[in-house]
Simulated scan of single mutants.
Amino acid sequence: MTTLTHAVGDSATMVARQLRHMVRYPSMTLLLAGMPIFFLLLFVYVFGGAMDFGANGAAAGRAAYLDYVAPGIMLIAVASAAQGTAISVAMDMTEGIVARFRTMDIARVSVLTGHVVGSLVQAMVSVALVTAVALLIGFRPGAGPAEWPAIVGLMALVSFALTWLSVALGLVSTTVETASNLPMPLVFLPFLGSGFVPTETLPAGLRWFAEYQPFTPITETLRGLLMGTEIGDSATAAVAWCAGIALVSYLWARRLYNRDPAA
């Protein structure tokens, strides 16, 4: 058996392990999707009627705001799933299972690969649940056959980047509680971008931060693909941010995982 075949086989085993955890404990997936769904309903039904996104009163404003806010909520769902990854990694590290894996003839890359692929599946399930609720309450995307593959690809790319970042945060955490708190800023960054209001409506200092943080071009790209509107150069910035975050996070996570456990 070649080294590559050995690594692929072990990675498949670790992915299956993570998927079994999802099936046995579906409450985690539902919990991670629950907060974005709560935000969706809160912002649409509590604040949506007051938003000046429609021309024919509160009902029109609420419907138009739903179309505007849905992409930001989808990104919060991805960030929430990434938070669950950090917790899962920290549990494996603190409960000793990784130490046991180190003594076995298992490809080292397979353990992290299992967490990453499992998290990608969990994130896509969370996004699907949020999208289903949005459609039920009136979300009507204008994406066509050409846009939907790009939408799925973008969500997978964002999830891949945030997952590797969360893996690193889980590895650097000394307790599960710390791992649950470190990724929290990822959940709130869409609020400080164009996820809920246009950036030009923000105060000057906050507007500068909103325009140059990674979630704003990602949100604008996702919104443009979903609604069939112009994207401009947002797609290039979104892909660049995701690639950069994924690369740096992967190198960081690999360094943390390969360090001497006794150090």
Rank of each mutant, 00 (worst) to 15 (best):
A179Q: 00
L32P: 00
L165E: 09
V130P: 00
L202Q: 09
P190E: 00
P217I: 02
V15Y: 00
E220R: 12
T219N: 15
A90W: 02
L129G: 08
F139H: 06
A246S: 09
F43E: 04
S110G: 02
Q18T: 09
I76Y: 05
A64N: 14
A134E: 07
M104N: 09
A77W: 07
G232N: 06
T85C: 04
W148N: 02
G96M: 09
P185V: 08
A50S: 12
G244T: 06
R17L: 11
Q18E: 13
M91K: 15
F215A: 09
V89F: 08
P149M: 01
D10R: 04
H115N: 01
L154N: 13
L157P: 07
T175D: 04
F47Y: 11
M93P: 05
V111T: 10
L165I: 04
R207K: 05
L40V: 06
A146I: 11
R62K: 11
G153H: 04
V89S: 02
M227V: 08
V8K: 06
M91R: 15
V248P: 10
E211P: 11
Q18G: 11
E147W: 02
D260T: 12
G49R: 09
S80D: 02
M22Q: 13
V8D: 11
R100A: 12
V111R: 03
M104Y: 13
N56R: 10
L171R: 07
R108T: 14
M227K: 12
P141S: 10
F160K: 05
A90N: 11
D105P: 05
G54W: 03
L19V: 05
V15K: 00
V109D: 10
T94I: 13
W208L: 12
T236D: 04
T85Y: 07
I218T: 08
A179W: 08
G224T: 05
S159G: 13
L247T: 13
S27V: 14
A7I: 02
G232A: 10
S194F: 03
V197R: 01
L4H: 04
P261Q: 08
G54C: 07
W148S: 01
M28P: 08
I151G: 05
A237Y: 15
A86Y: 14
G153K: 00
V187P: 04
F139D: 07
A7L: 00
T2R: 08
F43K: 00
A253V: 06
